[in-house]
Design a protein around this nucleic acid. Sequence first.
DNA 1: CAGTGGTCTAGACCACTTC
DNA 2: AAGTGGTCTAGACCACTGA
Lengths: 239, 239
Amino acid sequence: MFRYEEIAEDLQKKIKDGVYKTSEKLPKEYELCDQYETSRTTIREAMQLLENRGLIFKRRGSGSYVKSISEEEEVRKGFLQSSQFSGFTKDMGEQKVSSQIIEFAVVNPPREIAAALKMSVEDFAYYVCRIRLVDGEPFVVEYTYMPIQVISGVTKDTVQKSIYAHIENVLRLKIRSCHRIAKAMMPTEKETEWLAIDDGSVCILAIEQVAYLDDGRIFEYSVSHHRSDKFELKTITIR
Amino acid sequence: MFRYEEIAEDLQKKIKDGVYKTSEKLPKEYELCDQYETSRTTIREAMQLLENRGLIFKRRGSGSYVKSISEEEEVRKGFLQSSQFSGFTKDMGEQKVSSQIIEFAVVNPPREIAAALKMSVEDFAYYVCRIRLVDGEPFVVEYTYMPIQVISGVTKDTVQKSIYAHIENVLRLKIRSCHRIAKAMMPTEKETEWLAIDDGSVCILAIEQVAYLDDGRIFEYSVSHHRSDKFELKTITIR
DNA sequence: CAGTGGTCTAGACCACTTC
DNA sequence: AAGTGGTCTAGACCACTGA
């Protein structure tokens, strides 16, 4: 835990607790330097984190302010959210996540997927197709490819539980970034069945993802087909 | 144009031109300091920009490298992309964008929308419902609310062309950030007609957006319903 | 014009990778 | 052990806001 992270956490807590209220000015940077007994750079790094999280905004010549966010945006009932990519299991927090494995194999990846994974079609990759359930209800079908040269030791048990936990806790690899593309589409016949879709108003929010490790290696190409009535993707963009 | 922006542009160009190739090491930070005759902080700010754009990654103790991206991800045919939020017109670049106005009025916003805009239900907002066409083909239906106390002087002509151009060039306001939520859904009957959907495999990628100005004021709440076969949303996340 | 955040400098020391 | 990026300091000057 670095100093700037500590400060960011502390400020975030104060915003959440209403010490600094919506649209209200935060102390100026030099004041925070005094408060936390640190340099301006460190304060600015902390503030940068908060700005990226969409909690504050800054105005040159004026000050830093708490961003006004509607409560509606904060908590949206009935939807699972993904603003990070920590893996589905982690995203879900307290709710119970289980998996139903449709297929688990080692294969030569199709050409396009091999290209996305920057691997040869002659090398092998794990292929996992599984349904993820939260509190027993199906939410998403995931189709995942992982090069065995990068990710090893995946068992049926791993796939049943959490692949991300295996990568981080067993293999001790560090997940760094991911590139995602969100699309809408209709479910296939199989998906309609797997996701228990019995309502014509439900379709699919598809997220195609390429994920990278700490050392730049691509470890995963996946496509997740979510029930449109139970999942949404949240993003914050700052120019 | 600041020094660190110049350097970022230059490095980006060199990556694009293949001076630094995929998975290849970039010069070390101190070398770049010499090359550009600047301090390490400035170099690091430039690199930060490139990392956020998903072009490079860095490893403590090792070096900085060009991220390997599949060409597939770079250019995706047939899809319009939105990785920024510069407004639809700007996003589309060279292609011809036109609008068909369905409704243009000044209204008291519904309760939820007033809450999202942080305004009173008794104050007024522009309401615009329009179809956006690229090269004559409908892509998206936009439903937009803008408080008249923030955005003024919007005419039918503005709505016909580009609201964002009006905000930036006429009102001289600066757009700073936006919070988005992507969902999938089925088109309404009207939308099916407006978007000329004659194919049961097409549905809607909906993007709900709250957009902020430079000074923290919320200037827009909008929902965009895109044809699922012509639009996708791209995001890059770094932990 | 005073006050604020934005850019930039020139350094120090640390954590991690690589050999 | 040497080399790299990550954190942090103490300061300077600039661009912009707001009274």
